[in-house]
């Protein structure tokens, strides 16, 4: 089992970032995400919490040996993403897991978006509301008959996680710039306030 923890910031308000999340695909850096469908949407707690389930279809090249092993030759896979936008707490939590190939490789991911100063959420004081913190936890587990094979699968997965991660951050930065900051050219968001090379699209990048 491999684990990831990651944090980075986006220089936009929490409201803007949540708007961006719903408009994130397609972006030129995430060509492996083929489709995003809303399976379920529900408004609860007097309109303060929005629950959503989305089905994300991905397609990308995977090594032949891995394709043979997991019985997935064309690289198409499905990810279920379940999320809650909580207006009162100002929290946007997304949990994802892979639906295909999960007998061999299970990836679970939890992502949270919060305003940078969200400790006093009940006070309307003059906190800096123009930045949003992104936190990510992920767990990758391979199941195979031999421990050495598990390691091989996990190592490949980790490598792919890193390869695609920066692209995902860049893609989302670009989307936010297009939506809220059209004067900035598309590449300038690449390193904006990021202290990590991991992204919020890692699970989609991996499976």
């Amino acid at each position: 089992m491999k684990l990831f923890n990651n944090t980075c910031e986006f220089p936009y308000s929490w409201e803007q970032v949540t708007q961006g999340v719903w408009r994130k695909y397609p972006n030129e850096m995430s060509s492996h995400v083929k489709s995003v469908d809303v399976l379920h949407r529900e408004l609860v707690e007097n309109g303060t919490i929005l629950k959503s389930s989305r089905l994300i279809t991905c397609k990308q090249n995977i090594p032949k040996w891995l394709g043979m092993l997991i019985g997935n030759k064309d690289g198409t896979s499905y990810v279920l993403e379940i999320s809650e936008v909580d207006l009162k707490q100002k929290k946007f939590v997304m949990k994802s897991c892979n639906l295909t190939g999960s007998n061999f490789l299970k990836v679970m991911e939890c992502v949270k978006y919060e305003p940078i100063n969200n400790n006093n959420n009940n006070n309307n004081n003059n906190n800096n509301n123009n930045a949003t913190v992104f936190k990510q936890e992920a767990q990758i587990t391979a199941y195979a008959n031999f421990k050495s094979m598990c390691s091989k699968i996990e190592d490949w997965s980790v490598k792919r996680f890193h390869e695609n991660a920066l692209k995902g951050k860049q893609g989302f930065d670009n989307v936010l710039n297009i939506l809220f900051n059209p004067t900035i050219t598309s590449n300038s968001g690449l390193n904006a306030n990021s202290n990590s090379s991991l992204s919020n699209t890692s699970i989609k990048s991996l499976l």
Binding site: Q19, W22, R23, Y25, P26, N27, V33, K34, S35, V36, D37, V38, R41, L55, T57, V175, I178, L179, F180, N181, P182
Partner: peptide, 29 residues
């Protein structure tokens, strides 16, 4: 908000694209 992203969000099945677009516009607003 600035300019919108022009290309449509892809969906699982091509035949559902128009229906998805209608829903998505309603949801975003």
């Amino acid at each position: 908000m600035g300019q919108s992203i022009s290309s449509p969000v892809p969906v699982f099945a091509k035949e559902c694209t128009e229906l998805h677009k209608k829903y998505d516009q309603c949801f975003s607003t």
